[in-house]
């Protein structure tokens, strides 16, 4: 029974990782194709479907961590995936004015490369039990470059969206109402920008620590 369950877990995680990896490959392919054939202004329209699907599928990862299917701690996955979901749904999807900016290109390309490497790394590990060292090196090294470009694009896009958020009043709840509550999406966005200030260096140093741990361990073996 235990053997069957662990087999089921491996099959499921392999399918999950390769499916999402394929989604991000599509994102990268369409992004590059759009850039070559037309211009950066159309990148979002080119990648929208696979981007929304692949990024939303990451919610399952938080869930996997919560039920103990994978070892990664929720405290590490939640802020990372949460901020990505916010930019995808809460900024790009909700405020179409932001979609034509060139930062969308750097954003989706940074995300896509990171995720293709990450999901294929986990995918190979689930299927074969271990991953080749070059893939592991890529998994724990590309972030050095792609984290800064990705985060800069995220912060830049939120900043650009601020003006549209303020004028549209979308997702705002105003008094009076029976719940005696109010919510201003504009201040919510400002608060999220504020979290990026300590959050980004924290996540970067967390990944640096992971890199040191994993790469030094594999050297010893």
């Amino acid at each position: 029974m235990a053997g069957f369950l662990s087999l089921l877990r491996r099959v499921y995680l392999s399918l999950y990782n390769w499916t999402v990896c394929f989604g991000w490959m599509q994102v990268l392919y369409f992004a590059v194709k759009t850039l070559k054939e037309s211009s950066y202004e159309n990148v979002y329209d080119g990648v929208e479907k696979p981007l929304l699907l692949a990024q939303t599928a990451a919610v399952l990862e938080i869930f996997h961590g919560l039920i103990g299917l994978v070892r990664s701690p929720v405290t590490a996955t939640l802020p990372q995936i949460g901020s990505r979901l916010y930019v995808t749904w809460g900024v790009l999807y909700s405020f179409p004015e932001t979609r034509t900016h060139f930062l969308v290109s750097s954003l989706v390309i940074s995300w896509a490369i990171t995720e293709i490497i990450r999901y294929s790394f986990f995918g190979v590990k689930e299927v074969f039990g271990s991953a080749p060292s070059w893939l592991q090196w890529l998994r724990y090294s590309t972030f050095l470059m792609l984290y800064p470009t990705g985060i800069t694009s995220e912060v830049g896009l939120i900043y650009i969206a601020l003006a549209y958020i303020m004028s549209s009043e979308k997702y705002c709840l105003r008094m009076p109402n029976k719940l005696n509550f109010s919510f201003d999406y504009y201040y919510g966005a400002l608060a999220i920008l504020g979290i990026y200030v300590p959050g980004s260096p924290h996540m970067y140093s967390y990944m640096l620590g992971q890199r040191k741990k994993v790469l030094s361990r594999s050297k010893k073996d």
């Binding site: 008094m175 009076p176 109402n177 029976k178 005696n180 509550f181 109010s182």
Partner: peptide, 8 residues
């Protein structure tokens, strides 16, 4: 919220 001018 409790002392808000638009409190219901």
């Amino acid at each position: 919220y409790v002392n808000h001018p638009l409190y219901t």
